[in-house]
């Protein structure tokens, strides 16, 4: 658990903005998937996004590292505006880590190679140093003894922890998580959430798409609720879960809590 005091200690001065999304809109063909999104994320802030399936949560965080292209409005990450400029996109991706629902480890590489690939080729770190960093993060996610195995030999929970470590090896400024535990067997959810909670304790800026209420309550500064491509409600976790304002939020919460 992270105390309310540390949670509220985020400085909100303008130079501490790490992500700024202004009036952003996105369409898939004729389908208006994101509508007038405004969101500012400060350094060290942790945000949980929830909402019904198909509401645009994944699309929103994928726009932040340009896995999806937005058509209107602005997205500024770490002071760089996302445009068609490839160099800028690559620069932003270096600073923004992403963890996927289905892990997406590289199956032809060992765990160690999975982790050192980015640092070696993108950050141009010497191989030896990259492997030391990789081992450091593998220990952090309690999986160092698997370093020379291949992803296919690990359980889902282990793979997701490796995926988190892989992103951390790039020393990102922001971490994006897209439903990191929803493809896992129930008994493995906790080991992944524990890693994420530790990351939060260290002050990592995180945007997490997740319906894990316990996680949201213990680490999030803010919870956003999305529906039909819009951010419908935004509140502190306790207010959000105990006292939701919008009818759609209430309906959604009643559904996930049964």
């Amino acid at each position: 658990m992270i105390s309310e005091a540390t949670k509220n200690s985020i400085e909100r001065s303008s130079e501490d903005k790490i992500i700024e999304i202004i009036d952003m809109n996105k369409w898939f063909g004729d389908f208006h998937v994101l509508v007038d999104i405004n969101l500012t994320v400060y350094k060290g802030e942790r945000i949980v996004i929830c909402g019904p399936s198909g509401s645009g949560k994944s699309t929103l965080i994928r726009c932040i590292n340009r896995l999806e292209e937005h058509q209107k409005g602005k997205i500024i990450v770490d002071g760089i505006e996302l445009t068609g400029n490839l160099k800028n996109i690559e620069k932003i991706r270096e600073e923004v880590g992403m963890v996927f629902q289905h892990f997406n480890l590289f199956p032809h590489l060992t765990i160690l190679e999975n982790l050192s690939l980015g640092p070696i080729w993108v950050r141009k770190v010497p191989k030896k140093e990259a492997e030391e960093t990789a081992m450091y993060y593998l220990e952090k996610v309690h999986i160092a003894e698997q370093a020379n195995k291949y992803p296919g030999q690990l359980s889902g929970g282990q793979q997701q922890r490796v995926a988190i470590a892989r992103s951390l090896c790039m020393k990102p400024k922001v971490m994006l998580f897209d439903e990191p535990t929803s493809a896992l067997d129930p008994e493995m959810v906790k080991e992944v959430l524990d890693v994420m909670i530790n990351l939060a304790k260290e002050g990592m800026t995180m945007i997490v798409v997740s319906h894990e209420m316990g996680f949201a309550k213990s680490v999030a500064h803010r919870v956003l609720f999305m529906d039909f491509g819009q951010i419908v409600e935004e509140n502190t976790p306790h207010e959000f879960f105990d006292n939701p304002q919008h009818d759609r939020t209430k309906l959604f919460l009643s559904q996930i809590l049964h």
Partner: peptide, 17 residues
């Protein structure tokens, strides 16, 4: 799968890499 492309891209690898 698309996930492999996306994982590679989100690490910041360029097209050739």
């Amino acid at each position: 799968t698309r996930g492999q492309y996306e994982a590679a891209e989100s690490l910041g690898l360029n097209y050739a890499q």
